[in-house]
């Protein structure tokens, strides 16, 4: 019986683990969803494999992320991930936001992500790196993991 091909945190989990209530709750009613006026930086990230798109927007005041919003559509994993990420970075200094790593986001999600879904989970993190780069606050060592992709 096939139980999965991955190792460590990317091992496919059972479905009940993946679609936990709080994940579905973030999917149905995402936090920080919507456009923010006069954003200091924004970036539209897309997952070309599945058509997921999110636009992440940040407002910065005195080095603090004081406003954050996102729009777009996608699967439960990508939407919950963006919801959790925006909650996490709101009110934090840019230095702390740029130190927020992919693994931290996976910990926040708290579910096991299979290689095929990693791209969904990481869409918001990847968009954040682009936004930070526009703000001159990116940490170049903070990269978003990308699994070997299946062909379209």
């Amino acid at each position: 019986m096939l139980v999965g091909i991955g190792v460590s945190r990317y091992t496919p989990a059972s479905m009940d683990d993946l679609y936990r209530d709080y994940i579905l709750e973030h999917y149905r009613r995402p936090h920080n969803f919507g456009v923010i006026e006069d954003a200091d930086a924004s970036y539209e990230g897309a997952n070309p494999l599945c058509g997921d798109r999110i636009t992440l927007m940040l407002g910065v005041k005195d080095g603090i992320v004081d406003r954050v919003g996102f729009t777009g559509r996608g699967c439960a994993i990508s939407q919950a991930s963006a919801s959790l990420l925006t909650d996490e970075i709101k009110g934090k200094p840019l230095s702390a936001v740029s130190a927020f790593r992919a693994d931290d986001l996976l910990d926040l999600l708290g579910i096991e992500i299979s290689p095929a879904r990693l791209k969904c989970a990481m869409l918001s993190h990847d968009s954040l790196q682009h936004v930070l780069s526009d703000l001159g606050a990116a940490d170049p060592t903070n990269t978003t993991p990308s699994p070997a992709e299946a062909g379209a």
């Binding site: 479905m15 679609y19 599945c50 997921d52 559509r73 996608g74 699967c75 439960a76 879904r117 969904c120």
Partner: peptide
């Protein structure tokens, strides 16, 4: 209301 990725993931179960 359900993204096709999620549909496919649950069907795989």
């Amino acid at each position: 209301g359900i993204h096709p990725h999620d549909v496919a993931q649950v069907l795989d179960r």
